[in-house]
């Protein structure tokens, strides 16, 4: 099974572990992902707030760059996925938009016929094209005893992306069960983590993140599995800020679902791209006997020199 592959900017660095584990898992499952040559950013949730046509043209350049022999395009990042899918869909639905987007593309020597590509999220490709059965056949080290909370977030299932229920998705639940994990079915699994709000209006974002961490913790999850770099970043890298903000003490590692697949397929922690998460997954994964790569220890905090403090002493202690 061969697909055009759109990694998206995050997978180059901040979510490199998602890319590493995706490639490792794809190899095992017989998926061939051909990266779009010279792809550009999808504009995330930002460009539509500034310009309409340039935003669609930016996304459409990626669609136009997919070689003609490929008809399916997959993206592991939900935001990239929605932008790619929506651009294809809207160009098909609104001919005026398609005409103008193509006028812009033609200026750069490109063209895209809406409907030519099927845009698919990586999760969709794995559960529907590969299938649970074939995934199960690869499991050699089941994640037995590990309580995993699948976190879908928004854009993998909304707006009406078709492969799973937009409010109560279950495809990742089933996938994790196939990997041998104990799946935590918690109500907020498709709620929003705040997206870019961590940068703009931290209080709004922290509350949304807190709700998710709290809900997963209520159900005794050992870790949260996610499908989008932004969610991973918000829940992982801002977890300590959330704890400070609310006086809470969450310590929930956030991994990509592909990392858990790699572990269940018997791959090493390194092949699964582990070790770059800010909230260490060490304790959680020791439950299934995973040896984590050694993390560089930070410099020990400077302690104040005790002798520098003029502590009063009792008179009879002197001499």
């Amino acid at each position: 099974m061969k697909y055009a592959y759109y990694p998206g900017c995050s997978l180059e660095r901040s979510a490199a572990s998602y890319h590493t584990s995706t490639m490792a898992v794809a190899g095992r499952l017989g998926l061939v992902f051909q990266e779009i040559d010279d792809w550009n950013c999808c504009g995330a949730t930002e460009y539509f707030a500034i310009n309409l046509l340039p935003a669609y043209a930016l996304v459409a350049r990626n669609l136009a760059l997919v070689p003609n022999d490929l008809t399916e395009l997959t993206a592991p990042c939900s935001a990239c996925y929605v932008n790619l899918k929506k651009t294809d869909k809207y160009m098909g639905k609104y001919p005026d938009l398609a005409t103008q987007v193509n006028q812009a593309l033609v200026a750069g020597g490109l063209h895209y016929d809406p409907g030519r590509l099927q845009v698919r999220h990586l999760l969709d490709v794995i559960v529907n094209d590969v299938g649970y059965q074939k995934v199960a056949e690869q499991v050699v080290k089941p994640l037995s005893g590990l309580r995993v909370a699948p976190y879908y977030g928004c854009l993998v299932v909304r707006p009406g992306n078709g492969f799973d229920n937009p409010e109560h998705p279950t495809s990742m639940d089933r996938l994790l069960r196939v990997l041998g994990a104990e799946v935590v079915d918690y109500p907020l699994k498709a709620q929003c983590c705040g997206g870019h709000m961590t940068q703009i209006s931290a209080d709004v974002a922290y509350e949304l993140i807190r709700r998710l961490l709290h809900n997963a913790a209520e159900y005794n999850a050992d870790l949260i599995a996610c499908v989008r770099p932004m969610c991973q970043l918000n829940l992982d890298a801002y977890q300590s800020n959330v704890n400070r903000h609310f006086g809470t003490d969450y310590h929930t590692p956030i991994l990509y679902f592909t990392q858990l697949m790699a572990l269940a397929f018997g791959m090493s922690a390194k092949e699964a791209g582990l070790g770059s998460e800010i909230v260490s997954a060490h304790v959680a994964l020791s439950k299934i006997g995973v040896e984590m790569p050694k993390q560089e220890k930070g410099k020990p905090r400077k302690r104040p020199n005790k002798q520098a403090l003029p502590m009063p002493t009792m008179p009879d202690e002197e001499a």
Partner: peptide, 30 residues
């Protein structure tokens, strides 16, 4: 940075000229 998750320099795409042409045409149409 400690976990190697932040690039220190940007990595431009190869065909920036093409992208810039497309975007400026799109802006003109908009």
């Amino acid at each position: 940075l400690r976990r190697d998750r932040l690039a220190l320099t940007p990595r431009p795409i190869k065909n920036m000229a093409q992208l810039k042409t497309i975007l400026s045409k799109a802006k003109e149409l908009e």
